[in-house]
Design a protein around this nucleic acid. Structure first.
Lengths: 232, 232
DNA sequence: TTATTAATTGTCGTTTTGACAATTAATAAT
DNA sequence: ATTATTAATTGTCAAAACGACAATTAATAA
């Protein structure tokens, strides 16, 4: 068999920044690393890319293994490839960010892996360059969410406008006028109002909405301007 | 030395989609592949990631080697990692797109490498998954250029609004109203009008402009809405 | 019955957008 | 020298979007 002679070979891994929303704050899912070095330290969930899978496949596999979830929103971020980033041997890692419904996860919790949710603003120090990855993922999430309706991925099927509002504020770390927000979200035409109300949060109660999946699919690539003062 | 035992190792490469603009059309720079398999077939310029460099470093090195240019606009696109994408042995490739001033390149042309500019819409079939990479790069270029002032990177230091206008139309494959375009570009405040005129294109002549580099740097991350009908 | 609270709908002046017209500065033709 | 021609530039205006802010509504608690 022919080979590209003399070229160096490296390990290739994937690391996933898993975002969730508990109704109040943005969270990320971390695991305790299971191998040396830095064993038992907090890290992103990751794994090596196997011989018969693409990095995308690997990310989905890792996510399935550690959360039990399939078909989650997963997006390739960038590659991390500094020569010395892994002290043992050279490993390039493809960073992904994932958006999941935090409640869905709790149901399917897999206790084999020590996974835990942390507030994005109060998380432990992570191994290697994982801290940088989280910072990058957060930026990318903001960027993407300002233009595309992806934050729904972190909410249950039925959700209220106030819930969505808090989520947007959390992701963007800013206050958004409640009244203008409702109007903007409504104008996207992506939501279908349900008859049912959520009475847990207030006396009046807030109507539940669900995604119009057809329109959502059609608008996944469209530019939407979902944030005020988008133009600096 | 400790190793991650039993994990497979792969080759890691970079491939660059180099965009240029000749005043009329969008072009890409291709090279004739110098090694087996598919030797002498047209391909993107690429190379393996060396042991002491990051993928970003490698992309810059390849670009320098094949075009003579340094400090060009280079952006990581995504990783291509299907197991069978390279028939010889498994190679993952990080795709980059680059924007260069086509005239700058001509000056520094390096004849050691058989590089040639092709119209983006009339290019030869490329090896492996390079055709897919070009398609992806084009999409990404459109996306990015709709929001951020990056197309200037393909123009000379002095350029006219009509030149910029044609470039925008080329990249987006659409017609843009000349009058609204000038106004929008002016309103960004990124351009400085020069006293000199370009008289080659018309009787009246068009004023030259140059970038306000300070404002350009400040707006590199800002959202600008540079395309009409951005919202679908 | 009233006070309270949060959700929802409404108002309005300003800015942006995009379709379209008029003017201007040069050269080429008469 | 005057006029026609051409492309660059500036201008107009109605519709839509934006964003600051107020009023109303539907429930519960006092």
């Amino acid at each position: 068999m022919i080979e590209y002679s003399g070229q160096p070979h490296y390990l290739v891994a994937v690391d996933c920044i898993v975002f969730g929303f508990d109704g109040e704050h943005l969270k990320i899912l971390l695991v305790k690393r299971g191998l040396e070095p830095e064993i038992n330290k907090w890290s992103l969930m990751g794994g090596f890319v196997g011989p018969d899978e693409s990095p995308d496949d690997a990310a989905n596999r890792v996510l399935k293994k550690m959360t039990g979830l399939e078909g989650v929103y997963l997006e390739q971020m960038q590659i991390y490839g500094e020569p010395k980033r892994d002290p043992i041997e050279r490993t390039l890692s493809v960073g992904y960010f994932a958006l999941i419904d935090i409640h869905k996860y709790e149901e399917q919790l897999n206790d084999d892996y020590e996974a835990e949710w942390f507030l994005i603003n109060d998380r432990p120090k992570l191994i290697f360059d994982h801290n940088e990855m989280v910072a990058d993922a957060r930026k990318k999430l903001r960027y993407k969410a300002a233009l595309h309706p992806i934050l729904f991925e972190m909410l249950p099927k039925k959700f209220t406008i106030p819930q969505l509002h808090i989520l947007f504020e959390e992701v963007n770390d800013t206050e958004i006028d409640t009244r203008n927000f409702s109007r903007k979200i409504s104008s996207t035409g992506l939501l279908i109002k349900l008859a049912e109300k959520d009475r847990s949060g207030s006396k009046k109660g807030a109507f539940y909405f669900k995604l119009d999946k057809k329109k959502y699919a059609a608008n996944a690539q469209a530019f939407l301007n979902l944030m005020p003062n988008l133009k600096v």
